[in-house]
Each structure stands twice: as C-alpha cells, then as structure tokens.
Nucleic acid binder design. Structure first.
Lengths: 218, 218, 218, 218
DNA sequence: TATGAATGAGGGTTCATTCAT
DNA sequence: CATGAATGAACCCTCATTCAT
C-alpha cells in the first residue's frame, strides 16, 4: 500500500489558514468564477467538506480572502509608513517600499485583490477595499506634496498602477539580477521614486524625490 | 408551414461582427468563466448555434475578442505615434493620447483585455499582447531617452502600468469633471506626462518632458 | 453496437407530460426529499437537463405534480357528480365511484397528493389542495344529508380515509377476484356505501343509503 | 487540562430513550429523508457519535422509532380491548377509543408511523405493522359480526382508514372545540361508531352498534 | 440556413458516517 | 465515554456543445 497521509486533526484556525491560503492561490489563478471548490480543496490538501466547514460558501470564502489580503497589505504599508511626526516624504518612501515588498512577495493576494472580482458579486466590496488602499497612498502623497487629498487621488492611482506594472515586469522577467544588489523591493521602489519623484515634486512645489531620490537612503 | 418572417440572412462578416460585439460586452461584464454562451447569444439577438457557427467555441470566441481589441488598440497607438522622423517626445505623447483615448472610449474592450483575461487560460496570450504594446512604448522611449531598448523596458512597463492605473481611476471615478475642460483622454495623457516626464528626462539626461510637459501642447 | 434509442425531438408539451408522469411515479415512491432528479430523469428516459427544461426546479416540478393530480381528481369527481338538479344521494354515490376509480387507477397521483409532502415546503399547498378535495365531498354530503357544510366536514374526512383504507386493501390484497364481477371501483364504492350509508342516514335523518344502498343501482 | 464539567454519563437505556425521543420528533417533522442526523443529535442535546452509538445507523434508528411507536399503539389498543369474555361490541368500542387516544396524545409517533413511513424504504415494515393493527380490528369485528375473519378484513381496513382520516382531520383542524365536551378521543371514537356501526350491523345481521351506538355508553 | 431541443460533464453544497483525542 | 474534526458519496443545478428539423 502507499503511505497515505493520515487524517490529521488540526485546530480550526490552523485549518482555516490553510484553506484561505489555498483559496487565495486558486482564486488568483482562476478568478472567482473560474475557481472550483474542488481545486481549493485539492490545493489545501483537504476534502471539500472541510473547505466548507472552515471557509464557508464560495462567496464567503472569497470575501474572507479579500479581507485578509487587504488587511495585510494595509497594515503592512501603514506600519511601514508610520504615523510619526517625521518627514512625510520619508514616510511615503517607506510606504512604497513596503508596498513593493508586499507586491513581490505576496503576488497572489495582490492579484486576488486587484485583478479579480472587479465584476460580479464583489465589485462593491473590492472597490471599497481598493479605495482604502489607494486612499492610504493618497493620504501620504497629500502630506508629502502639500495638496488636498482629492487632488492627490489620481496621482495615487497612477502611482499604484506604475508600481504594479513595474512589479509585473520584475516578476516575469527572466534576468532578475539586473536590478542590483540591494533588496529587490527596495530597488524597485527607488526606481519608481526616481521616475515619478521629480514630476510629483514639480506638481506639489516641494522637494519630494529631490536629488536624493536616486540615491536612496539606507 | 406558416409563413413567418424568417430571420434575415446576413453576410457572414456582419454576423460575426454582431457576435463579437456581443461577446466583448458580455465578457467585459462577467469575465470569461462568468459569461455564458447563452448570454452572448441573447445579447447578439441570435441563436446559440449561430454563435458557434460565427464565433467558434467559447475559448476561440474569447481569443477572437482579445485579438480584435488588441489589434485596434495597437493600430490606433501606432498610427497616432506615427513612424515619421519627427521628435520622439512628440511621438510618445501622441501615442499616450491615443492610448488613453482608446481606453476611455472603448472601455469594454479594454476591460476584456486587461482585467478579465489577465488570469486564466489566456494569461499567456494577454501577456504577449501586453508585451507588444509595452514594446511599442519601449521603442519610443528608447528613442526619446537615447538609451538601449533593454534599459528602457522597465520604464516602459512602469509607464504603461501608470497609464492603466490612471485610466482605471478615471473610468471608475464618479466626478469625472475634475480633470478639466479639454478632451479627457488628452488631459489624462498630459497628467501622466507631467508625472513621469521630469523623472524620465533626468534618467535619460535629455529633455523628455521638459518644463513644457506640464503645459501640454495642443 | 447496441441499438440505442436515438435522440428524439418531441414537442415541449409531450416531453413535459412524460416528465410529469415520471415525477409523479418517483415522488409517490420516495417522497419529495427521497426522490432525486436523477431518478426522475431515468424514469422518464431523458437526460437530467431536460427534466429541468420541462419541469423546472425540483420544487416547481413537485408543485406541478401536485396541481395536475389534484386537478384531475377534482375534475373527475365533479364531472361524475354533476351539477344537475337530480338526487343529491345519487350524486354522492356517483362521486364516490369516480373517487374510487381514481384511487385504484391512479394510485401514484393520490399518494403524491395525500401522503407526501405533508411537511416541508409544500405543507401549505398540499393542505389547500386536500381541503379542496375533501371540501367537494363535504359539499356533496352536506347536500345529501341536509346538514351544514361544517358539520359534514369530519364525516367527509372519515369517508375519504375509509375509502383510502379500502383501496389500500384492495390494491395490496392478492386475491382481488373476491369482490365480484362488477367494475372493482364500483364494487368498492358500493361496499363503502353499505358500511357508512346507514350511519350517515341516521345522522342526517334522511334516506341516504337506504335499503337500496346495499343493492347498488346499475 | 481544564476542569470543565464533563457531560453527565448516563445509563445506556436512558440515553437511548433520549435519542429515540428526539428522533421521533425530528422524523415526524421532516420525514425520513428530510431529517438529518445532525438535527437528531441537536434535538437530543448530545453529539452525533452518541446518536450512532445508541441509535445505530439512520435506517436502524428510524426502524427503532417505528417499532417503539407501533408497539405502544398496539399494546395500548390490545390492553383496552381486553381479552375478556365480555361483549365484542364493547371491546371494539374500547379499542377504538384507545386508538384515538393514542393518536391524539402521541401525535408525533403517529406521524412517523403513518404519514412519513408509508412510502420509502420502510413501506414494507409499516405495512406489516398496519396489518397487525388491522388484524386486531378484524378479529374483534369477526367476533362481533359473527363472520369469518377473511370476510371481516376489508371492513377492518375500511374502519382503520376511516379512523385515520378522522384523526388527521382532528389533528390538523384548528377549531378542535367543535366536537364536544367529552374527551376528544372518546368523542372521535363515538362519532366513528355512529357512522359505521349501523352499516356493519346490517351486514353482520347482528346488533353491532345498534341504536345504542349513537348514544355511546360512558 | 437558422433554430429549438437535447445532453455529457462538471460545480456548489450537504449529509451519513467514522476517526482521533 | 463523549466529542470535534474529517471525509466519500450523492444531490441539485447549469453550461458548453451538438443534433434534427
């Protein structure tokens, strides 16, 4: 006989994490409609009823994925940007670095959040989460540029899109060594700041991304 | 038999265009997996077998939508950028404007291309199309910046991503009046140039998006 | 190769009748919850999607069975009893004969109506249909006995139960020849009239099922 | 480990009674197929494995319910009818009263027995139980009418069916006050005797349910 | 030709039943 | 002993696809 994995009994929250991880992976690959609960169960290495027991219905499961990934991303960016009294520009840069770090290390969660479910039963919820995330960037930028939040909003969307495009290129390009010796996420963030920094500075009339932008702080 | 008015026999190309139009609409709203061939047939006002006769299988139909919309986008950007011998910066700007024009006027096609097909069985094809578009931008930028194409590539990805983010914001924001009196697509393109122009200029050491960038040419 | 039945194209109402017949058979044997749409499809000799196309969801299918069988039974009894001006007693007897005929020839429909779905999502509808049917008997009895309808109601229920018990015995007993040469349903009806006629007559103070009751009219 | 109050360990028979009681309640409400073992466990206030430990599989549990309720009904009717040497008519009347008493006071058991189990995998078992009860009635009637048992059988089926119909009406009718001041079960039994007594008497040629039938003994 | 009719296959969900603690 | 955790099997329903008219 084959050495089958025995039926392990695990704590509910452990199983739930397993199920959510698998669900994020599958949803990010196939989308909400394209993903099957069978695939989620197989990816998690559990039976389908267990997926339902720990994750609820397909819609509930997807919503849980959305919320978890959005929370993680928001928390990570917020904690990196800090709420301290230091320079808004520094805070923005730290936030960007954290954002890139999340993009490149948790690509699946980002895909679920951003590219999936823009239509369907979750359009509203997804849109709200997106607004929260971009709003965070807009807040930082409004502080850094000294402009009202409403003005900063399109720039924030532009920034997030640019980051996504850059991350996509980074993740799909084969020779990922070209960026340099530093932490990739940091290098990407610095590249982005180099691209958009001067323009934003000119818009805000302040020194965002000054000459120091291209030689990022350590 | 009764003498009912038979369905008008139309030329095959006309029928195919009807079917593709309906398919783009339905796919953009529901996604590949969420859309049903019944919905496509209903939207086109024809029977289901006709959809198969003119559009092929669901995958073929989706691929045809993808290619048609991508072709339109590419052609429009290329024809706007021109192959003339004039200023690469002006060509880039014209290309960007055409890009935004296509995004904002053919939203459904854009949605099908970018948001619905970026995952699932068409990720590869979408990626290829995307590389074509980005490659176009990279060529323009390589010319404008005076750098090798390989160096321009990440910047091109960043630029296209930024354009996507900005277009997404524009398409989903409710108060679309805030941008200004000019043609929206042009205003968006100019905004983007204002953001990334100075940074790219500094990188390339040339005058791409100089001070005139923020006061766009007419 | 085996001589498989070819895929026949039939008119929708013909298929619907097939599906309803199969559904009545399966529901009467297994009950609403116990019946599976697979079993209905198999019994009808069609595929499952066709059951849905012609019969709707399981609940709709069951409700359609209910209504069809109730209509048939009601119509049959009403048309037998007539609305003429003749003797109420004769009308009651004719109604009973029709009722027994329906019981013994369409047992499945009766089972669906009477024994199934007394609980569940159809309790209300089933109860209403039951009340209609018993109400018909109560009306006839009220006319025959010269008592108010409300008084006749328990007797009607008693009569219907007695008929069911008698029919059950008849249908499950092996030597069904013992009843006699007449039409079985008529013989059963006459037997029932012989049992309950005198008692009901005494209650109503009229001649329902007088001495002629045991020698039924031809 | 924490010192939680452990579930009280009860004697096996006590647990089994709990489980059977819950099962009868749930089965009577939902039917065999509609009831879930989860519902039984919840109603009994125990865990599901305990239901299996004390009640066996779902089919065994249902069969046990069936047998317990049938035994109670049979025993009650037999003990009421007695085996004494007194008047068969009086014995029949007492048996009927006990029958109605059981029906009206143990409605759930009756529902399980008759309405839920008359079809499905237990039709055979229910039929056997029904034959036992009807056979009891047939014996009494054979004695009372002075006819062979085989002749009395259809009348017994008719009688039991009538009793069921009357009991169903009584149990589902809302204005249960219309019957009178006496014990409902007795009133129902007397009503039934008034309906079928004279007819049976005429058939048997003896005094079963003579004029005294309509003014029942106390 | 254009279509209504038909189906094989698969997805979401639940349930009876059994381990491992 | 008593339980929460886990699963194989089945059920309802829909969809992409294809005939027969």
């Amino acid at each position: 006989m084959t050495s089958e994995t025995p039926r392990r009994r695990l704590a509910p929250e452990v199983r739930r994490r397993q199920v959510l991880d698998a669900a994020v992976a599958v949803f990010s690959e196939e989308g909400f409609h394209g993903a099957s609960m069978d695939a989620v169960a197989a990816r998690a290495g559990v039976s389908k009823p267990l997926v339902y027991a720990r994750g609820g219905s397909k819609e509930e499961l997807f919503a849980a994925c959305l919320r978890r990934e959005a929370d993680r991303l928001l928390r990570s960016v917020q904690s990196a940007a800090g709420s301290g009294d230091d320079d808004p520009v520094a805070r923005l840069r730290r936030g960007l670095r954290a954002f890139f770090h999340a993009l490149t290390t948790r690509r699946e969660g980002w895909t679920v959040l951003w590219r999936q479910a823009s239509t369907g039963p979750f359009a509203g919820e997804v849109d709200a989460l997106r607004r929260q995330i971009v709003g965070e960037a807009a807040d930082l930028m409004a502080g850094g540029l000294g402009v009202p939040r409403a003005v900063a909003l399109p720039y924030a969307h532009t920034l997030v899109g640019a980051a996504e495009g850059l991350a996509d290129w980074w993740l799909t390009s084969e020779d990922q060594e070209t960026v340099g010796g530093t932490e990739p996420a940091d290098a990407l963030a610095d590249l982005l700041v180099a691209v958009v920094g001067p323009g934003l500075a000119a818009i805000g009339g302040r020194s965002l991304g000054s000459s120091t932008a291209v030689s990022p702080e350590r």
